[in-house]
Design a binder for these strands. Sequence first.
DNA 1: GGTTACAGTGAACGACTGTACACTCAACAG
DNA 2: CTGTTGAGTGTACAGTCGTTCACTGTAACC
Lengths: 241, 241
Amino acid sequence: MSNAVDAVFSGAPPRSPAGGRPPAPPKEVRTLDPVSEPLTPVSRQERKLRTRQALLDTALDLLAARPFASLSLREVAKGAGIVPTAFYRHFASMEELGVALVEEATRTLRGMMRSARTDPDTYQDMIRASVATVHQFVRANEDHFRFLTRERYGGGPLARAIGVELRMFSGDLAIDLARFAPLRSWSTEDLHMLADLIVSVMLTTIVELLEARPGEDPKITGTAEKRLRLILLGVPHWKTR
Amino acid sequence: MSNAVDAVFSGAPPRSPAGGRPPAPPKEVRTLDPVSEPLTPVSRQERKLRTRQALLDTALDLLAARPFASLSLREVAKGAGIVPTAFYRHFASMEELGVALVEEATRTLRGMMRSARTDPDTYQDMIRASVATVHQFVRANEDHFRFLTRERYGGGPLARAIGVELRMFSGDLAIDLARFAPLRSWSTEDLHMLADLIVSVMLTTIVELLEARPGEDPKITGTAEKRLRLILLGVPHWKTR
DNA sequence: GGTTACAGTGAACGACTGTACACTCAACAG
DNA sequence: CTGTTGAGTGTACAGTCGTTCACTGTAACC
C-alpha cells in the first residue's frame, strides 16, 4: 500500500525546519517520509498538488548549495520520493519546474513589497521600516531569496523571467515614490532611475544578508540604511540636465 | 615568450573578434586548432601555454551562454582541440580552471581600475570619465565581465573568489575617495559604505550593458552617470550618526 | 646521438543522465 | 457496482560524464 504518493508531507513546515540554517544540515538528501497521517483521506488532485510541491521544495533545497543548471531531473524526483519518470506528470522538463520556482519566489517578493507599503511619512521612518521589512522577509524565506539572487545573473530563461519581475517591482516602487512631496516634480525617467538605484541597493543588501555569518545582521542592515540615507540626501538638490 | 601575462589588455581587445556579438555565432563549437603556423618553431612550453590558453578561451566562450557549473571537462577539452585526458596536463579539475578564469578576468578588472585613476579634479569629470572607462572596458572584454557578473552570485568557490576580489576593488576605491576634499573628514567606515555603493552601481551598469540590445549603450551610460551624480549630491550634506 | 621528460592519444570503466514504454492500482464518474 | 483515468512504478535504452591506464612521438638535455 503506502506508496510514494503519501510521501508528500501533510501539514508540517514545508521548509526551513524552524530556526534558520546555521548548523548546516549534513548532506541530507531528504527523501521525504512517506508515512504522514492520511487521517483526512486526501483527494486525488490534492495528492498531486502535494507531490508537485514536494518537487519544488526539493529543488529549492538543493539550490541552496548549487546553481539551477546543475540540478538533474532524477535527483529532484528522488528527493521528492517519486521515480524519475513520474516527474513528467508534473512538469514537461526541468526548465518548466524552474519557471514555477520563479513564480513561487516572486510571490514572496511581492509579499515583501506589499508589506513595505505601510506608508510612514518621513524618509527616516521609511528607510528604517523598509530595511527592517527586507531583513525580516529574507530571514523568513532564505531559500526563495537565495534562488532569486543566484539565478538573476545566471543567464538563460530563468534570469530573463526574474529580470522581468524585478522591473515590475522597480516600476511599482517608482509609482510609490512619486507620492512623496520632494519627488513630485521629478520626471518619470528620473523616478525610474531612483527606483532602480534603490532596488539595486536592496538586492545588494539581500545578498549580504544571505552571505552573512551569524551576528552580522545589525551591521548589514545599518549599512543598508546609511546607503539609502545618503541617496535620499541628494534628492532635494537634484536637477535634471 | 608571450605568455598569458601579456594578454592583459595592452591596447587591443584580446577577445571578441571585432564587432561585438550581435549576429549570434550559430552553435559554433570552435575546436581551436592548436597548431597554427609553426613558422616560428614554437618551443615546448610555448605550445603548452597556448593549449592552456585555448582551454581558458573555450571555457569563456561557452560561458557566454551557460553557467560555469554546467560546463563539462570533455566539451572544454574538445573545444580546445585536445582529448579529454590531456586536460589534466593543465588543470587538476574544472574547478581549478575556474580559478584560473577568475584570475584572468580580475586582471582585466584591475586594468579597468588602473585606467580609471586618471584623476580628473571635479565630480562631473570623474563621473563621466569613470562611466566611459567602464563602458569601454566592458565592450572590449564582454566575456570577462559576463563571467564575473554571472558567477559572482552563483555560489560555490568561484563566487567566493570573485567576492574577495571585489572587496579589494572596493577597498582601493575607498582609498582613492579619501583624497577628495569633501570626503576628507569621513570615517573609514563611511568611506567603505560609499565605495561599496559606487561599486554596486557600477556592477548594475555592467550587467545592463551586457544585456543591452544594440544602440542602448548611451541610455545606459547616461543613467549610470545620473545615479552616481545623485549619490555624490548627497555627500556634502552627509553626517554620520 | 642516445636518453629522458612530457603533452597528447585512444580504449575502457562505472556512474549518472533524460526519456520511452508497458505496467499497476486506487480514486473517481456514471 | 463497473469502467475509466491517471499518478506512480520498473525496466531498458543510448548518451555523456570524470577518470584510469598504457601508449606514442618529439622537443629538450647531457
